[in-house]
């Protein structure tokens, strides 16, 4: 089985990243936004791992950072879900467009 090389992974990562950003920017459902954020984080993870694999200098760092990002994503999801729950309790909706009370 031949090596794929670095570029396909970067393309995949970029695709994932753009998907995530578009998801965050277009979804009105807060859960959907959260999912978009997860996509962005995982795009970064793919990058980390790919560089760890193909650049020996970052062998250790890339993997450690990927693990870090996973932990971070878990924590972030917990906090974000708590916020969304609270928001739902107060407003009976999870539509982020309704969350504009602090606008200028």
């Amino acid at each position: 089985m031949s090596e794929l090389g670095l570029p396909p992974f970067l393309v995949l990562s970029a695709f994932l990243f753009v998907c995530g950003v578009v998801c965050v920017a277009t979804k009105r459902n807060a859960i959907g936004v959260l999912m978009g954020v997860e996509l962005v984080l995982n795009a970064a993870n793919v990058n980390f791992v790919a560089f760890a694999r193909y650049n020996p200098v970052f062998r250790l760092e890339g993997e450690v950072f990927a693990l870090m990002v996973i932990v971070l994503a878990a924590a972030e999801a917990a906090v974000a879900l708590a916020i969304i729950l609270n928001f739902y309790n107060n407003h009976a909706t999870v539509d982020v467009d309704k969350a504009d009370e602090l606008k200028g």
Partner: peptide, 9 residues
């Protein structure tokens, strides 16, 4: 102030 819409998107 107008820029600060409160819209996440």
């Amino acid at each position: 102030r107008a820029v600060q819409t409160g819209q996440l998107r």
